[in-house]
Amino acid sequence: MAIKICIDVLLAQRKMSVTELSQKVGITMANLSILKNEKARAIRFSTLEKLCEVLDCQPGDILVYEKDDLKN
C-alpha cells in the first residue's frame, strides 16, 4: 500500500491512548484499529478532520505517501 497511516506515531508523541483517541474522535475502537493497522480502504473527510482536531495536526501528518518498490 502506498498510503501509510501514522496514527501510532502521533499517539506516542501526544502520550494518548487508542481508547482516548477513539472516545474524543467519536469512532469505534474497531474502526480506529482498521485505520491504525492500515487495513482501511477509505477515510471520510469528517473523520480525518476530527482526527486532525484531536491530535492537533495536519492531514499530511496522518497520511503519508510512500512509493511502492514493486516493479511491473
Rank of each mutant, 00 (worst) to 15 (best):
Q13T: 03
Q13N: 13
M16S: 03
S17L: 07
V18S: 13
V18I: 04
V18P: 04
T19I: 12
T19L: 11
T19D: 12
E20N: 10
L21C: 03
S22G: 08
S22V: 04
S22K: 00
S22Q: 05
S22C: 08
Q23N: 10
Q23A: 15
K24W: 05
V25M: 08
G26I: 02
G26R: 14
T28F: 00
M29F: 07
A30P: 01
N31Y: 08
L32H: 07
S33P: 02
S33W: 09
L35W: 03
N37A: 03
N37K: 14
K39P: 00
K39G: 02
K39W: 06
K39R: 15
A40W: 08
R41V: 14
A42C: 06
A42D: 02
R44V: 12
R44H: 01
R44T: 06
F45K: 12
F45G: 02
S46M: 08
T47G: 12
T47A: 09
E49L: 15
K50G: 03
K50Y: 00
K50C: 06
L51S: 02
C52I: 04
E53R: 15
V54K: 05
V54I: 14
D56T: 04
C57N: 08
C57T: 12
C57S: 03
C57E: 03
Q58T: 14
P59R: 09
G60N: 11
G60D: 08
D61E: 08
I62P: 00
I62N: 02
L63R: 08
V64M: 13
V64T: 08
Y65I: 14
